[in-house]
Write a protein that binds this DNA or RNA. Structure first.
Length: 902
RNA sequence: GCCCAAGUGGUGGAAUGGUAUACACAUCAGACUUAAAAUCUGCCGCCGCAAGGCUUACCGGUUCGAGUCCGGUCUUGGGCACCA
């Protein structure tokens, strides 16, 4: 090697090896027919923000990189790709502020992210790099959407949704957080809970000691924490609820953190119960409710319908009309903020004047309206059983409604004092008295079903997925709107039937009805037009709505081709059409990117069947726990859908999932600009090198734990890497260390520690316990350094073990030891179990469980001999004098415990 | 309120029911050096002169033996939140 200086000069060799890997395409994935088993390691791809790489990125990426390099050394064909989740709000906000196209800014950010990732030496196949903003990529995002559209899983709704004025777009429920907001009069400023230190006596702001007052919990946007409000806006919605059951079932077989599985299960929120129909006195309409407690039907003392329930106006009596109207007015004016304010759960409501008939006993019970019943869940109506439901109980107390106990042993339960929500034998329930709740549930449901007044039913908390954003910088929908009359003229053999749903998807725009028609796969991708301004309109419409040359087109009902309306209609089947101006949310592109890595340039399919068959799904997926419901649920939905329509061979995308913990600032707080505790990877690499950063991130603690960064702690790793360097390289000559020789005598201790290290590093990489793998390498270092001479193979093995963690310095040492190829091409070391065996072991002698002495003995020493040794030991005898023997415990190879009394 | 996870030296952390504090960081003391950096050596949970005693958030239990298993309490962090 030219210029072989003996000093540990990481800037020189880190650059050199990064160029080497690039030139030799060291980490390029082998072709499908290479005959090697595959291993697919996936990182959650980053959003390329203007701020550059966060220190949390290299944490997860180093973990997966160690795994990838380890599997490579074991002979696997490893796929370890990287790409960019490049559509998103910050680029668009930048565009609004500067007028610069988001595409340009995004490209700049991607280049910076790529530079930073390459600087860290990740074993990534850069030939497979992808960006969700690339038309060659989002062509298939649009294609998947059209498949959903064709299967009737995409529809348009104009129900109220969360709208964020600051971001100028709607947000999915999942993108809205409930946050405590505080006001600080001294600073004339509102603060979020994360910015306020709450003390026992009240709250004080973190700056100075200014008093603050709580403004209560408010809904805020997850991104930017801006205020959000409810607005009715026309939206595309994906019917994820149709997959609720499958999404729950699929979780069972996955090797995921239990907490994440539980989170998804709770989010989907399956409830089993019954629908029960109540007749309404004096009305032909009836009222159907959903309940999980049909067993408590005899205890129903009133009914509640949501304020938005369609029966509200129908059943309200004239006497109650004004009271109901004023209540509805109050509810309407109640900001959503107040309605969801959880600090104040005081029940409000109003009587409709109407009565329902309980189908089991004919009892006449009043129907109320209350906003604690949600129109969006179940049937928007409930039967209230105050004795056995806390919310109903509170309401009954508030409005002095009767509370009738139907479950539980009467002696211990007082339902006038609190609701009893446990199970128990039935009382006051006619023929069901004495039966268990469980039996009663089944029997009552069956009885009602026989009379046509009920059936068992399942409900989910999961809502359909709000899939459109009023933005420019997203995938355009490959959809146009035409008049129903034109829709009726679509020829039977039209190419657009490729994606045409069985039922038209309607939508009302400015009082006129339109039907949605798709482009064909030939017209994909539909790319974004250039626009003059990225500013969203105050009405909440997308900036695309102003690009009328693009939106107003002639549409060919046969082929799906389009021509701008600035030109005359090209033919008789060409009808006036308006393009959909919303764009898809950022989640769309991240729903399926792991599939595209498999076959990133395929023009005919999202990936070829052969490639999908060989690579399957990622064997390992690592990313932050913040995506536990959003990304991971959406991606599972799309994957399962593509499986159901025969596009994919597997039902679930991610078999094994891992969440790395957060890297906190040195103060133990979450890193943030405002706290000034942000650690920049560029700075660390400059000062300590990429190897040190990688290894230190892994040494900080368990991968899954949140742990604070320490700028001092990294020196321990730097020292270790320098010691590794000196173990192999002579600092004066730059050649092989003079300690290394063929005749080197190595102690039994050193050989055993080497094999122990091979064993532990291998096991710890498999189980992602990198911190302890590094500790073991340090232990080996402490032993190896003391050895006057070393075998070449010992040093080589050591360097190989460290290579996945600190690849640059290990490549450099490997080369100095005389190898020409990359260290990753050398086979992973194997340990010899025979070398792990110790001839003698240390035995501990205990008296009453306390260690009093130790002794080094031959491994096979018998129980009797051990006991004799223990009893003879003076430090043991001291504690036996004058005591009576109770018991003797002897664990060969470990300990002797003598139990005495008195 | 409900669900979950975690509490071990000054700090990050380690520990198949079997010597708690491995491995590091920091501090301190020393060696080398004209000096600094780098490097190396040693000490390093608490009380105690010592013998010894105490110690894994707290209280109790199981066990010859508990950081580890069981029950309860407290604290911190995360998730959900009127979902019938």
């Amino acid at each position: 090697m030219e210029n072989a200086s003996g000093t540990y000069d990481f800037t020189a060799f880190e650059n050199r090896w990064q160029s080497f890997w690039k030139e030799k395409a060291t980490f390029q994935t082998a072709p499908l027919n290479c005959g090697r088993p595959k291993y697919y390691v996936l990182d959650m791809f980053p959003y390329p923000s203007g701020a550059g790489l966060h220190i949390g990125h290299p944490e997860g990426y180093t973990a997966s990189d160690i795994l990838a390099r380890y599997k490579l050394a074991q002979g696997f064909n490893v796929l370890h790709p990287m790409g960019w989740d490049a559509f998103g709000l910050p680029a668009e906000q930048h565009a609004i502020a500067t007028g610069e196209s988001p595409a340009i800014q995004t490209q700049r950010n991607i280049d910076n992210f790529r530079r930073q990732l390459q600087m860290l030496g990740f074993a990534i196949d850069w030939q497979r790099e992808l960006a969700t903003t690339d038309p060659g990529y989002f062509r298939w995002t649009q294609w998947i959407f059209l498949q959903l559209f064709r299967q009737g899983l995409a529809y348009v709704s104009a129900k109220p949704v969360w709208f964020c004025p600051a971001l100028g777009t709607v947000l999915a429920n999942e993108e809205v957080l409930s946050m405590e907001v505080w006001h600080c009069p001294a600073l004339q400023k509102d603060l979020l809970d994360s910015e306020v230190v709450v003390t026992k006596t009240g709250a004080t702001s973190k700056v100075g000691n200014h008093p603050v007052t709580s403004l209560g919990k408010q809904p805020r946007s997850e991104r930017g924490h801006h205020p959000v409000e409810r607005r009715p806006i026309r939206q595309w919605v994906l019917r994820i609820t149709a997959y609720a059951e499958k999404l729950i079932e699929g979780l069972d077989a996955l090797d995921w953190p239990d907490s994440t599985k539980r989170l998804q299960k709770n989010w989907i929120g399956k409830s089993e119960g019954a629908e029960v129909t109540f007749a309404l006195e004096g009305h032909t309409d009836s009222l159907t409710v959903f309940t999980t407690r049909p067993d408590t039907l005899f205890g129903a003392t009133y009914m509640v319908i949501a304020p938005e329930h369609p029966l509200v106006t129908k059943i309200t009596t004239t006497a109650q009309k004004s009271a109901v109207e004023s209540y509805l007015e109050v509810v309407k004016n109640k900001s959503d903020l107040e309605r969801t304010d959880l600090a104040d759960k005081k029940k409000t409501g109003v009587f409709t004047g109407a009565y329902a008939i309980n189908p089991v006993n004919g009892a006449k019970i009043p129907v109320w309206i209350a906003d604690y019943v949600l129109m969006t869940y179940g049937t928007g109506a409930i039967m209230a059983v105050p004795a056995h439901d806390e919310r109903d109980w509170e309401f009954a107390k508030e409005f002095k409604l009767p509370i009738i106990q139907v479950v539980g042993a009467d002696a211990e339960v007082d339902v006038q004092k609190a609701a009893w929500t446990e199970d128990g034998p039935m009382v006051n329930s006619g023929p069901f008295n004495g039966l268990s709740s469980l039996e009663t549930k089944k029997k009552i449901t069956a009885d009602l079903a026989a009379r046509g007044l009920g059936k068992s039913a399942v409900n989910f908390k999961l809502r359909d997925w709000l899939f459109s954003r009023q933005r420019y910088w997203g995938e355009p929908f490959p959809i146009l709107w035409i008049k129903p009359a034109d829709y009726a003229c679509i020829p039977a053999d039209a190419a657009i039937r490729e994606f045409l749903p069985a039922q038209p998807v309607p939508c009302t725009i400015e009082g006129q009805e339109f039907y949605a028609v798709p482009l064909t796969s030939k017209q994909l991708p539909l790319t974004l037009p250039a626009v003059k301004s990225y500013q969203p309109s105050p009405t909440g419409d997308s900036p695309l709505s102003k690009a009328t040359e693009w939106t107003e087109v002639w549409y060919d009902l046969a082929t799906g081709q389009t021509v701008s309306q600035t030109q005359p209609a090209p033919g008789p089947l060409w009808v006036k059409a308006s393009r959909e101006t919303n764009t898809m949310p950022q989640w769309a592109g991240s729903c399926w990117y792991y599939l595209r890595y498999i076959d990133p340039t395929n023009q005919n399919a999202l990936a070829s069947t052969e490639a999908l068959k060989y690579w399957g799904c990622p064997d390992f997926y690592i990313g932050g726990a913040e995506h536990a419901v959003l990304h991971l649920l959406y991606a599972r939905f799309w994957h399962r859908f593509l499986y159901d329509i025969g596009v994919l061979p597997t039902a679930e995308p991610f078999q094994k999932l891992f969440h790395q913990g957060l890297i906190l600032g040195e103060d133990g707080e979450k890193m943030s600009k405002s706290r000034g505790n942000v650690v920049n990877p560029d700075t660390i690499v400059k000062e300590h090198g990429a190897d040190a950063l990688r290894m230190y991130l892994m040494f900080l603690g368990p991968l899954e734990a949140s742990k604070p960064w320490s700028s001092e702690g990294i020196s321990g790793i730097t020292r270790f890497l320098r010691r590794l360097w000196r173990l192999a390289v002579d600092e004066n000559t730059g050649g092989v260390s003079t300690k290394i020789s063929a005749q080197a005598q190595e102690s039994e201790d050193l050989v055993r520690e080497l094999h122990r290290t091979i064993q532990k590093v291998e096991k710890d990489i498999e189980t992602l316990q990198f911190n302890t793998a590094i500790s073991q390498m340090m232990i080996l270092m402490n032993v190896a350094e003391k050895s006057p001479s070393l075998q070449r193979s010992t040093v080589e093995t050591f360097v190989q073990l460290a290579a996945p963690f600190a690849p640059h310095v290990c490549e450099e040492i490997w080369a100095r030891l005389g190898h020409t190829g990359s260290i990753t091409q050398a086979a992973w070391p194997k340990f010899d179990p025979a070398k792990l065996v110790e001839s003698s072991v240390e035995i501990i002698f205990q008296v009453n469980g306390k260690v009093r002495a130790t002794a080094k003995v031959a491994k096979e020493t018998s129980k009797e001999a051990l006991l004799a040794l223990a009893r003879a030991h003076p430090d043991v005898q001291k504690f036996l004098e004058g005591k009576t023997l109770v018991k003797e415990v002897i664990v060969p190879g470990r300990l002797v415990n003598i139990v005495v009394a008195g």
